[in-house]
Design a protein around this nucleic acid. Structure first.
Lengths: 160, 160
DNA sequence: ATTACTATGTATAAAAG
DNA sequence: TCTTTTATACATAGTAA
């Protein structure tokens, strides 16, 4: 029991490393808890092991999710240094990108549908003299309106 | 400089609290760094202050985002205890919900467009005898096909 | 607010049960 | 693998510049 000074490098011995990991993870979470209580701040921590078996989230995945959401929603104020701000912008962009990825698929579908509608509209208009359907013309006007609204919303989302 | 034992409660004095916060936050991030290096694991930590001015993410918002993504993608194995698993399922659900929220808006728009199309289709069919437009009928068949594909994809997304 | 100091509390490496 | 035990390294409260 002669504690040695620990070098800042990977602990070579696997048993020692696992032992150390367990203790340090516990210590880390205790520190997080203290920080939260003593200083009245929100905090979360995530530790991932290679195999995932010992991955852990503090204080809980749900709470961590809340903290993450809060950071995304209300990032540090402009009093931060420029470098941090740049990184935070990158962070927001990345999270937004993740959220938007699936959304993009849908918007593409929406746009695809629009094209189909536009074509159909042209075709129908070309046939309008023949069909002379007042109701159909009304329907197309309505659809044009809807498409414009969807377009606006897509534009809004893209400028986030 | 006679360091006293710190109680596990909010530090009343604001100056002391801010002082402590700064030191502890630095200490926490150092611990995270050590854990990562000594034990070869991934880790991140998020600390949020009320005003947001001193909120900070370790090691960086981008890296934290990666760690979060990794946890979401590959959660702890089944060797975890039941309570943790339940919480993790909740975590995943919550993250998925966040991602899906905007997606849902778009799928609603897609469905709304479908309805419009269906109505338009019915109207057109009703007028088909009058318009007798072969091209338009062909277009509607194409659209029906596309709608079916979109429906399938929406169903796929919803069963995630 | 930031840096420096140092006494002391706390975390933890190593050993052992 | 988990727990307990120490000795020691490390973190940090209090103070001052």
């Amino acid at each position: 029991m002669v504690r040695s000074k620990v070098k800042y490098e990977l602990i070579a011995d696997e048993r020692t490393r696992r032992e150390s990991f367990k203790k340090r993870k516990a210590g880390l979470f205790k520190k997080l808890d203290e920080l939260k209580t003593l200083c009245h701040v929100e905090a979360c921590g995530i530790v991932l092991t290679g195999d995932g078996a010992h991955s852990e989230v503090w204080p809980s995945p749900n709470k961590a999710s809340e903290v993450i959401d809060r950071f995304i929603t209300r990032p540090p104020s402009s009093s931060s240094h420029r470098n941090n701000r740049v990184d935070q912008i990158g962070f927001l962009r990345q999270n937004l990108s993740r959220v938007s990825k699936n959304l993009d698929k849908e918007t593409r579908k929406v746009k695809s549908l629009e094209k189909e509608l536009t074509i159909a509209e042209c075709v129908t208009k070309g046939e309008a003299n023949i069909s002379n359907s007042h109701e159909l013309q009304e329907m197309l006007r309505l659809m044009e309106k809807k498409i414009a609204m969807v377009n606006k919303r897509i534009a809004d989302i893209e400028t986030l």
